[in-house]
Amino acid sequence: MVIIKDGRAITDEWLHLDDEAAIPPSGQVTVSLLRWHAERTALMARPDPVGLRLEAGDAPDTIADDLQRFPLIVLSFATMADGRLFSLARLLRERFGFAGELRARGDFIVDQIFFLSRVGVDTFEPTEDISPEAVGQAITTFSVLYQAATDEKHPLYRRARR
């Protein structure tokens, strides 16, 4: 799967562990929220970083105190129509101050990248392969942004002379 970050394709340096898979003694891994809650101590005892995978229904409140430990949070799109992850992304960034990599992964399409980048997603791993150019174009689909969101602190009426 192609992953695009900062305008270029990157290789995945993370092992995305299924809930059933054994935790390797070392190496970067991501785990589900469920597993993080269940095996937090063991995961924290490892020498290498742990990332988190969130699904649409996950509540960020329960991990607010842990967020800064994660260099990576993966938002797992089960279906492109499920917009809950857009709210989740904003909450992670704006309410809980998550500053690490926020990666959208799974069933979403290039036309949603504009919205995703506005709510704080910075890395894109859609099911269908995509080029860095296409991601760049998608992010800049619209040059005017009416609303405040993660990317713009203020609405257009505060930013522009109208």
Partner: peptide, 14 residues
Amino acid sequence: RQWSTFHPEFSYLP
């Protein structure tokens, strides 16, 4: 209308 146009968070509602 302007606030809701291409709102990044609310374009894929239930």
